[in-house]
Simulated scan of single mutants.
Amino acid sequence: MIYYKNNATPKRIEWWNSLPEREQNLRICLFEIQKIAIPEQKTLLRYKKSRKEVLSAKATLKQLKLIAKAIKRQIPGYINIEKADDYSVAYLCACCRQGVPAYASYCPNCGQRISM
């Protein structure tokens, strides 16, 4: 666990080791964006002099936040699709409660990764 150093509990280390490698990499990338890149850009924004530099830094911040949001959507959660009712063949996303095709791996409305 790269970003916990020596502060991780044994239970947390066991959880981390149980994650797939792809999910570990996504979580590390998300941590680096949220805890390093975004605060760094906010700090640099304070020292920008010209309007062009300020606008460029703000655009970079916006892009980093969008990237962080996209990475969060890639991390599988406990979002499952549910049947609309007992007699229906339609499924609903548990996140946004909109209709989802049964073959989809991502909700077409909110983009959340889903599982059956």
Rank of each mutant, 00 (worst) to 15 (best):
S18M: 01
P39H: 04
N6W: 00
K52V: 13
I28P: 00
K52Y: 01
C29L: 08
I33S: 04
R97F: 07
R73P: 08
G77F: 05
P108A: 09
L19P: 03
Y4A: 11
I71E: 01
N80Q: 13
K58Q: 03
D85C: 00
L19T: 04
L55H: 00
L30M: 04
F31H: 15
C107P: 04
C93H: 02
K35F: 08
L26Y: 01
I71M: 12
K62M: 02
S88G: 06
A70C: 03
A104D: 08
C93L: 04
L45M: 12
C93R: 02
P108H: 07
L64C: 10
P20Y: 03
I13Y: 03
K49Y: 10
V100L: 10
L30I: 05
E53S: 04
C95Y: 03
S115F: 14
E82T: 15
F31M: 03
A59Y: 09
L92N: 08
N7E: 06
S18L: 01
N7M: 13
N25E: 14
R97C: 09
A37K: 11
G77C: 03
L61M: 12
W16V: 05
A8M: 10
L61K: 09
N7A: 10
K49G: 07
R12G: 06
A84R: 09
L64H: 08
T43M: 15
K11D: 13
M1N: 03
K65Q: 15
W15D: 14
I36N: 12
R51L: 09
A68I: 10
Q74Y: 00
R51T: 12
K35E: 15
I81P: 01
Q34D: 08
Q74T: 05
I2R: 02
T60V: 02
A68C: 06
W16Y: 13
N7H: 00
C96G: 14
N6L: 00
Y4Q: 11
Q98Y: 09
N25I: 06
V89H: 14
I2P: 01
Q34P: 05
N80I: 09
N109W: 06
I81F: 02
L92Q: 07
Q98D: 11
I28L: 11
Y91T: 00
N80H: 07
I67A: 10
K5Y: 12
E23D: 13
K42S: 06
M116R: 07
A104F: 02
Y103N: 05
Q98P: 14
A68T: 13
A68N: 10
L66C: 06
E40N: 15
Y91K: 07
V54L: 00
L55A: 14
A57V: 07
R12K: 05
P10C: 01
R51F: 11
P10L: 14
A90Q: 11
K52E: 15
R27T: 00
C95N: 15
K48A: 10
Q34V: 12
L26N: 06
K48T: 15
L45K: 05
R22W: 08
L64F: 03
N17M: 12
A94P: 01
